[in-house]
């Protein structure tokens, strides 16, 4: 390990002059205020009665209004399991799908950075033909498993015969762009097909449906973000490990991943946040058992208009765990890295 130095964190090791520091703090605190004030408003709204919310702006508890825990009581005791059940669902679905997504995504990202792919047009063409056959089978009234099997059979057949003759193809960048392009269609257009998909698999209203969908939906983001981090990992380390006989898997696990920890942590946080907060897909894929918290938040706007006080409580208890996680993981983003390449 001697050849690798640990660094304390930031880039600028030059000392900062006093005026620059003052200006920096002014800017930082200004943005802190911008960020925190809305959250403060949530916090005080959660302590108000409806009358105080509708009556005009009241800012400071005990001075402007008498705080009450009515809303908290409603969420935790009146709603009880209607709060805790979605909460558990959100935690399970969020963490599981994020873990899977980050794992699969960083593998793919690493592969796209360090390996060269050439997907032949022949293979793509075979796939399209196979897909067309599957679609025709299903449209013609055949059951979908038959269509699936037929499609796969045709695909393998074509791939091993005709497709080999085509030399030209798409490379790594094209694969990456294809992946990210899967996020371009708004969920409103894809949610019904996904619903039917899981209905056929009898997986509606289960954790599995949400976990699988979120994994698929967020993989492109992980791939793109991790690609850049892996690119900044010095390739020399991997090369020397490879010369020592380490397998690609071992290099990935023992060298590349540890070096990309800040990126992994940042990416983990994003994907967790996305999965934690997703609304439309959760709405359609769940009904009684697997509902998640964003639905509970949105549901606070019903026939009587938004119930700000309940909504504020829900939002606060929703971001609690994510903030805790951010605080816990912040260390890793800040910790600095193994910098400096191999020396020898």
């Amino acid at each position: 390990m001697a050849s690798i130095r640990r660094r304390g964190g930031s880039v600028s090791t030059t000392s900062i002059s006093f005026p620059a520091m003052t200006l920096s703090y002014i800017a930082l605190f200004a943005w802190t205020f911008v960020v925190l004030f809305p959250l403060y408003w949530l916090a005080v709204t959660a302590l108000k009665t409806p009358l105080e919310v509708n009556g005009g702006p009241f800012y400071i508890p005990w001075r402007d209004f008498q705080p009450t825990l009515d809303s908290w009581h409603y969420i935790f005791f009146d709603l009880r399991e209607d709060t805790f059940r979605p909460y558990t669902n959100t935690v399970v679905v969020g963490l599981t799908s994020t873990a899977i997504t980050v794992l699969l995504g960083s593998m793919a990202a690493y592969a796209l950075v360090r390996m060269r792919y050439q997907v032949g047009f022949g293979a793509i063409g075979s796939f399209v033909i196979a897909l067309a056959i599957a679609v025709v089978v299903v449209v013609a009234g055949g059951p979908w498993p038959v269509g699936l099997v037929a499609g796969i059979a045709v695909f393998v057949l074509l791939l091993q015969t005709v497709a080999r003759r085509f030399k030209r193809g798409v490379g790594n960048d094209d694969i990456a762009f294809w992946m990210i392009s899967q996020r371009m269609l708004p969920p409103v257009a894809t949610v019904i097909p996904i619903y039917i998909f899981f209905q056929q698999l009898q997986l509606l209203d289960t954790w599995a449906a949400l976990i699988i969908t979120y994994t698929a939906a967020h993989l492109p983001i992980v791939v793109w973000l991790m690609r850049d981090y892996f690119q900044s990992v010095p390739v020399e380390l991997e090369e020397s490990a490879a010369i020592d006989g380490a397998s690609p898997y071992r290099i990935f696990r023992s060298i590349v991943l540890p070096l990309a920890v800040p990126g992994l942590v940042a990416t983990f946080l994003f994907v967790l946040v996305f999965a934690w907060n997703e609304y439309l897909i959760a709405l359609f894929l769940t009904s009684a058992n697997a509902q998640t918290l964003p639905l509970t938040v949105a549901a606070q706007n019903a026939t009587r208009g938004p119930q700000w006080w309940y909504m504020s409580v829900l939002i606060l208890i929703m971001i609690g765990p994510v903030i805790a996680m951010a605080i816990a993981l912040e260390r890793y983003i800040a910790k600095g890295l193994l910098v400096g390449a191999v020396k020898g």
Partner: peptide
């Protein structure tokens, strides 16, 4: 980081 963590509907 906080603003990002709130559900967009929220």
């Amino acid at each position: 980081l906080l603003p990002m963590m709130i559900t967009p509907v929220g």
